[in-house]
Each structure stands twice: as C-alpha cells, then as structure tokens.
C-alpha cells in the first residue's frame, strides 16, 4: 500500500471513530441527530441532544484526538532522538514533574486553573533541570548523560509527589490526587481546548518538520554533525516541543501512559523507519488509539474508568503481541 493510501485509510478510520465517539454514551445519538445538531452550530441552544453533543462529547472527542496524537508523536520523536525504542515522553521526567505540580495544586487550592498551571510549570521545570544537569556534566547533551539526568529529576519529583500524597488529607485531597494521576478525559472543556488546542497543534506542526533531522540523528552525534545537522540545537528543539506537548496533555487529562511508547512501534510497523513518515503516522494512530480506548471506557461500564488504567490494560497485550510477532530483530 502506498503512503497516501495508508494515510487516507487512517483518516477514514479516524472519522468513523470520531462519529462513534459522538454517538455512543449513556444517551446514544443517531447519526442523523449528530449531523443535524452539528449543522445547527454551537449557539442554537435548546434540546438535550444539543447540550450533550456540543458541551460534552465534542470537546471530549477533540481532546482525546489531540492528546493521543500529541503523546504518540512525542514518543516517536523521543525514541528517534534517543535511538532507543524503549523510551517514551516521560524519560526526562516530564510526567513526574507535571504529576507533582498537579498534586501540589490539588493540595493547595480548589481552582482547576491553578492545578493546570502548576502541572505545566513543574513538567517544564523537571525537564529543564534534567537538561541543565546534562549540559553541565558536558558532552553537549550526550544521550546517556541525558537519560541519567532524566532519571535523577524523575526520581526527585516522584519522591516529592509521595510527600504531597503523604501529607494530603486522606478523606478529601488524597483521593482527588490519586484519581487525577490515573488520567481522565472528563475535565476537558471548550474553555481548556480554546488555548490548549492551538498550542498542541503548533507544537506538533513544528515537530513534524524535524523528521529529516531526526533520521540523521539516529546515525550518532559525530556523523550527524558531518551530515550538516546541529545535534545540540536539534535535540534542544525536540526536547522543548515534546515537553510542551507532554505537559499540556498531563494538564488536560492527567497521566496517560503507554500511548507514547506503543503507538510509534505500530507506526513503524506500517511505514518503516523514516521519521518523516513515522511522526505523522504516530499522530494519527495515537489519536485513534486514545479515542478507541476512551470509547471502551465509556461504553462497557456505567462509571467512566480512568483512561490511564485502560491505555495500560489494552496497550500491554498489544505490546506483548508486537514483541511476539517481531521478535528481537524488529527492535534493533
């Protein structure tokens, strides 16, 4: 299958999944009702279907698409940059930092914007600290030093998060923190998306442009340099964009694991190693994967299971299947 056909097929599948996402739920909507209500526009007001679709499901579906795409693309970029198929966006401590920030926000305040702001701030801070440490140690961000620095900051913020949990009120604050960390799409609203969507889309577009340079980075630092690519600058750019993407997703929906690790492998299975294709394929597959998981979370139970649990529960068997099918050769 040519690349265009594959992309077309993915786009069709995404559209169908999105329609399902709009239709299914405790109050199912028919296709005609969805089309009719969407055509009415957001301000038509009135009916029950209108409220469900415009106020709840549409932002929910859009959020799932954007977050899935952002996480998967960040994972693909990180795996390319670290020349390691086992890394995901949290390797530099972004999720640990963002999780700690959010927990701190939940402990101190009831305001959701405060939680989000602290989550974003500490996500960026954790990665900033890891990068600064790696640069200080030397080697212009040599990969192994970067990974070790990420482990240090990640461990630091995990410990700090434990302190916050330990001191939190066990009847009120602690459950809020624990649920939030499990990841959920239920807090997504137009209000959030209004500023998050443009940021996510811009960062993803900028990251897409790095595909060719990511390819060259997989040749090792000195060869990349001899091929005209500034290793340090490219790496910083990718870290910055990826951290921004990952922290925004944590802010919107808490910790959603496994998407960034597994989806890039599916993308590579479809389209090969070239990052100029792996990045867009990962984005589309990630969007579809999270939407699918979200649909399952909403369809099979009366309460919505935190999506972070399901991405892992569904992602792990897929990962195991991939491993069985590809064997060691596929991961080299």
């Amino acid at each position: 299958m040519t690349v265009r056909l594959q992309l077309g097929a993915l786009a069709v599948a995404l559209t169908l999944l999105s329609l399902l996402g709009l239709a299914l739920g405790p109050f199912p909507l028919s296709l005609s009702a969805i089309v009719h209500t969407l055509l009415q526009g957001p301000d038509a007001g009135g009916g029950f279907a209108h409220t469900i679709l415009w106020e709840i499901r549409l932002p929910h579906v859009l959020g799932a698409l954007l977050i899935g795409a952002a996480l998967a693309m960040s994972g693909a970029a990180y795996q390319g940059m670290f020349i390691n198929p086992l890394v995901s966006p949290e390797v530099l401590g972004v999720l640990a930092g963002a999780g700690f920030g959010a927990a701190l926000g939940l402990l101190w305040s009831e305001q959701f914007w405060m939680v989000q702001l602290l989550s974003l701030g500490f996500g960026l801070l954790a990665v900033g600290m890891a990068v600064a440490l790696a640069w200080r140690v030397g080697g212009e961000g040599a990969l192994i030093v970067l990974v070790l620095s990420g482990m240090i900051t990640g461990a630091l913020f995990s410990a700090l998060l434990s302190i916050v949990k330990y001191t939190a009120d066990p009847y009120d604050k602690l459950p809020a923190i624990v649920y939030w960390l499990m990841g959920s799409l239920s807090q997504i609203s137009w209000h959030n998306l209004a500023w998050a969507a443009p940021l996510l889309l811009t960062a993803m577009l900028l990251l897409l442009r790095e595909g060719g340079r990511l390819n060259v980075l997989t040749q090792g630092d000195e060869e990349a340099k001899s091929l005209g690519v500034s290793v340090a600058r490219t790496r910083l750019k990718i870290i910055l964009l990826t951290t921004l993407l990952a922290s925004i997703t944590v802010m919107l929906a808490g910790m959603i694991a496994w998407v960034g690790l597994i989806v890039p492998h599916l993308a590579r299975l479809m389209t090969g190693a070239d990052h100029r294709r792996v990045l867009p394929f990962s984005a589309l597959l990630g969007a579809g994967y999270l939407l699918l998981v979200d649909l399952l979370a909403r369809s099979f139970t009366t309460v919505e299971i935190p999506i972070g649990i399901l991405t892992a529960l569904i992602g792990l068997p897929i990962f195991a299947l991939l491993l069985a099918r590809l064997g060691a050769a596929g991961w080299r």
């Binding site: 020349i83 060719g212 997989t218 040749q219 060869e223």
Partner: peptide
C-alpha cells in the same frame, strides 16, 4: 561544512530498520 567534506567513520551504529538507500540519501540531503 557538509558540502565541503564527507566523513566515512570507522565504527557505525544505526538504530531502527533504515534501508541502506535511506542512509545513503542522508548524504544526498546533507
């Protein structure tokens, strides 16, 4: 620099399953 001098290293390590022609094409684009 990349348009002035090309480098053939002694040791090479590559990640992911790039085709040989993809690797050579990195030279075309350099």
């Amino acid at each position: 620099r990349a348009r002035f001098a090309a480098y053939v290293p002694q040791q090479h390590r590559t990640g992911f399953g790039f085709f040989a022609e993809d690797i050579v094409a990195m030279g075309s684009d350099a």
